[in-house]
Nucleic acid binder design. Structure first.
Lengths: 217, 217
DNA sequence: GTCTATACTTGGATAGAC
DNA sequence: GTCTATCCAAGTATAGAC
């Protein structure tokens, strides 16, 4: 699904140049989505940013929407790799919070979540787009769920709160925080939030000591 | 700020008809934002929905952006009235959660929060729009903060978590949940979330009994 | 105040030269 | 595969009739 819209012939020899052009367009699409939003991400705006001709958008991707979806694929793949590496050695809730704070700061810097937000909000403009975007967000949920299971599985809260629902909530919060922060430009406020969350996790961890859950070892 | 873009002369006699036209356009703008998003909310699409001429958008509001901001004002005022009435007789955290669930269900039905989301996401399309949208969201923060102070003020968590930060988080979560729910169309999932939140509040309330805070009476 | 008509701009998409 | 040129649809905005 990550390379849709390619023209009929695929093999041959000089596919390198073609792949490079596609990459340039995808990168330009990402930057344009960040700077001017979904409604500002036209074929002309994107191709101009890439220093390429406007017709190439349709040659390689068939439509602007397809290019934007390819851009979403790119950031999604990128973030998944980064997230996976980040929680590799994480086991406790407190460590997870540290990683979450670091990741969120990164996302603010790179603006990659903005791409996601713009695509979700822009999805309502054309009928089929919503479903395409939805399938591309799927990995975010499963990833978040796995991270929660891995770190909070032994917590007594796990029996009250299904991790899939918590994951859904976390992703929603992630998107909402990104939106508001992008709007008012106040990065520090949202970053201080993670400090409070860290305290809260510590506090709840202390409470949990009173009600030890199922032993896993 | 709620009635910007009016033409030079304001007083006179037959202002009723004018006010009615503006209301029709604002209502149509709201519906169009909900159905087709920011990028689909053109002067033509809105005026056609209102059954009015396209030129009236510019006569009454000066630009499409101004009409959209007027629409945001309308839903914001509407929601604030509704929220205020809803928490009028609320005093405990548990009651607040009940009200929050009811309100969120209402918002899903009316789609009013979608308007907010679309305007935030669309704000990046033109330079000045972001600031205009930001000022209109201000009341949502102060309202949420007041509701938290009113119900959680006696909780031991209040000393750890500044209510303004919690309010910011709640609003972000609200927006994110609306976005995701609007995307995949699964209303039940998000509504079940409030059930879990209710349980969590009850649980934390029980914990709080171990560490009684500052007495207010 | 509202309508029709129109000028102008931007955007999606395709055809054909290179 | 990429570029130029072009067509057509849709959008913003204004002028002028009613």
């Amino acid at each position: 699904m990550a390379k849709s819209g390619s023209p009929s012939k695929v093999a041959s020899g000089s596919t390198e140049r073609s792949a490079n052009t596609r990459r340039l367009l995808v990168d330009a699409a990402i930057e344009t989505l960040k700077d001017h939003g979904f409604s500002g991400a036209s074929a002309r705006a994107i191709s101009e940013r890439a220093g390429l001709n406007q017709g190439l958008v349709f040659y390689h991707f068939g439509s602007v929407a397809n290019l934007l979806l390819a851009a979403l694929d790119a950031v999604s793949d990128d973030r998944m790799l980064r997230f996976s590496a980040a929680i590799e050695n994480v086991s406790s809730p407190s460590e997870l919070m540290d990683v979450a704070a670091k990741i969120f700061r990164e996302d603010l810097d790179t603006g990659h979540v903005t791409v996601l937000v713009e695509m979700i909000a822009g999805a309502s403009s054309s009928p089929g787009l919503g479903a395409e975007v939805a399938t591309r967000i799927g990995p975010w949920f499963t990833f978040t769920k796995d991270a929660i299971d891995k770190t909070f599985g032994a917590s007594p809260f796990a029996s009250i709160l299904p991790s899939s629902d918590v994951a859904f909530t976390i992703v929603a919060l992630f998107l909402g925080l990104e939106m508001l922060t992008h709007l008012d430009g106040d990065r520090e406020r949202v970053l201080s939030l993670f400090g409070h969350a860290q305290q809260l996790v510590t506090l709840l961890g202390a409470f949990s000591a009173f009600a030890p859950p199922k032993e896993t070892s």
